[in-house]
Design a binder for these strands. Structure first.
Lengths: 161, 161
DNA sequence: TATTGTTATACTCTATAACTATA
DNA sequence: TATAGTTATAGAGTATAACAATA
């Protein structure tokens, strides 16, 4: 249990707490839109990086194959995605976003942006500047997390969603 | 209600995307500890801000009262928290962290910190400095979200389609 | 045999509505 | 009546194990 030295103990501790709270808050915000976080995430991925097979989608989303099967089933029943079996390999199922799915995605994005804008307006100019200044660093941080978990598969996520 | 212009369009858009990806990543990280995100969040809150009544805890955690009742029941059955009815008002139930709960919290925290430290080490010194510099602003942002949601509950939802 | 996907089962987590107990 | 908490019910979301269909 020897406490190996941290690069910056204060930063890391506060950052950890911050992220915990942030996740908590964003979850409730996300729930507002009538579309669940899981659906939003998968739909966003499909919209950004084109059609996926179920197994691929499960992998990049970090869930099990059965979980993705069910998630896709729910999304399909709501008209957000379409399933299609390709000619080549009849075991596979390709999942793609429908027009309705794209509409929903866009609405959600607009809502989130409006919400964040409200929050950011509540801060002082210096606070906003500090966040803007840290944005590239935070983006690199997230990309790093992606690489760690996604292995070799999806570093190309400029998900502008 | 309908802001035709955003305070800082680039900041808000990138920030929104960043948070979406961040949540996605942290969800899988959180699962590592054998303790669920909901339990971790509530337990952490109890450990930081002392005993809470069920209703208070539900409010600050942003979930319904029944959800918190059940969450507390699960945590109690695992020995993480203790429930106690005070003398004054026998309707109330105060929830507090047990020693075992604190142990679990500490282990989880250590794991998360190690993970984040790894990530932060992967950045340059300037990136770390930028994040450290933005921490107070981000903390204020999260606190604001708390106030917004704790105040009016969910009556003031934005129309979403 | 290996793969792709599904079904079966069980658990966590959540919300709303209806309820009990206390104030 | 009002408040604190619980129970009832329903549904989303998840995982592991077992299965079917295709390769």
């Amino acid at each position: 249990m020897s406490p190996e030295r941290l690069a910056d103990p204060v930063l890391v501790g506060r950052f950890s707490t911050l992220l915990e709270q942030l996740v908590r808050r964003l979850r409730t915000i996300s729930a507002v839109g009538g579309i669940s976080p899981s659906v939003a995430s998968a739909l966003s991925r499909l919209g950004a990086d084109g059609p996926f097979r179920v197994t691929e989608l499960a992998r990049v989303e970090g869930v099990s194959q059965p979980a993705m099967t069910q998630l896709v089933a729910r999304m399909e029943s709501e008209g957000l995605v379409a399933r299609e079996t390709p000619e080549g390999d009849r075991r596979s199922v390709f999942v793609s976003v429908t027009d309705r799915g794209r509409d929903v995605l866009e609405q959600r994005r607009a809502r989130r942006i409006a919400f964040l804008d409200d929050l950011l307006r509540g801060l002082g100019r210096e606070d906003r500047a500090a966040i803007a200044n840290a944005l590239p660093a935070l983006e690199r941080l997230v990309d790093q997390g992606l690489v760690d978990q996604g292995k070799a598969g999806q570093q190309d996520d400029e998900a502008e969603n």
